[in-house]
Design a protein around this nucleic acid. Sequence first.
DNA 1: ATATGTATTATTGTATACAATTATACCATG
DNA 2: CATGGTATAATTGTATACAATAATACATAT
Lengths: 220, 220
Amino acid sequence: MKEHKSISIADQIFEQLEHDILIGKYQRGEILTELKLSETLGVSRTPIREAIRRLEQEHIIEETSRGAVVIGISKEDLFDMYEIRMHLEGLAAARTARSITDDGLSKMKEVLDLQRYYVDKTDADNSDNSDNIKNLDSEFHRLLYIFSGSKAYYDTLLPIHKKMIKYRKASMKSHSRARQSLNEHEGIYHALEHHDPELAQKLTIEHATRARDSILEKEI
Amino acid sequence: MKEHKSISIADQIFEQLEHDILIGKYQRGEILTELKLSETLGVSRTPIREAIRRLEQEHIIEETSRGAVVIGISKEDLFDMYEIRMHLEGLAAARTARSITDDGLSKMKEVLDLQRYYVDKTDADNSDNSDNIKNLDSEFHRLLYIFSGSKAYYDTLLPIHKKMIKYRKASMKSHSRARQSLNEHEGIYHALEHHDPELAQKLTIEHATRARDSILEKEI
DNA sequence: ATATGTATTATTGTATACAATTATACCATG
DNA sequence: CATGGTATAATTGTATACAATAATACATAT
């Protein structure tokens, strides 16, 4: 599914730290020191420093003389990020509807089918598939950005989407929202399939709006 | 003017490389190897690697097994980035108009006055102040983003604005455009001063639109 | 000639040693 | 008790050595 080029330790650490910060395992204000991470993770400081530089560049940590301070994502950030998505993601979807290939469509379909599988499974046996559903949800959006064919939209939207993970995770715990989200994705997919930019745009904006409202009513 | 915390060699190298890539000194496809940079810049590989990690995170270079390949910013990217700015920057300006303080206003005024100084100087003695003007132009936008009070808008818009440098630089070589741009900035500033979100938004969108058109007609 | 295997080289990846800086604790002094 | 200064410790910053990997060149066999 992904390119396979022997992911380095530094990259692994970056992804792990990024994930842990974005899901809130490390709280805002917490200080990460290189030595401590080095001991905890069992690697030298070099790859850790490189990971930290990248996190710093993403503005989710901040360097100080006493270590790297976790910034994380606040609810105000979340609100603003939804506003931004509501203004951009529809445009990206319209582009995707124009330019997506059959190959792209089948990749998105695959993700949707899996997402459908897990949602139905939860309906059937009441098991908790929220983590899988959340990841597939992310992947759907990532593909939507990629197949827009625009590096600028991809580079702008993906980081925003990634930074929402903590809140989307919470949102997906509500299975009714998970099911609704999937339905919306399927609607967007059909618009893409019919290469209907206006519809894709409209549905995507609605999707972002509902996602925001669903989170906001939860997070008061 | 800026926080002074003994900027490290790694940071300096990052800024220099970022600048050199974004102004096109390193062309798309060019390969930067750590050893070569290390010899050229007279430092060890460690700070260079850290700079490269950050550039990689910005998606302006790409790591391969043969070195870091320069990606840079294409004209298609530029077009998309303007589209994004046209949809977001007005919203940011409206927020700034709502929340900016007198202190923030005076900081922006200072930048505008300097920009006015250089524009008038060029009018008077025909000297080339385009680099100064371009930098002040950037600083105006940076302050506009900062005083929006939104980390999300800042983090989204600033990288986009930075990545346009090569093209804005070319645009500012036309003194009539430089003068017009300044006039537009002053208009936006007055809207901020009067805490008029609607006007600030409208003028900012117009500003982005004109900037785009000015560049596009040049770059055919 | 083409393909294949192997040695060589170029390059990145990681660990470690040391330097520089900053924060902290503690003591002395008024 | 407050203040300042000095030693100590904690932490980051940089250089360097070595390991791992990937690319290249070249020779050999078919």
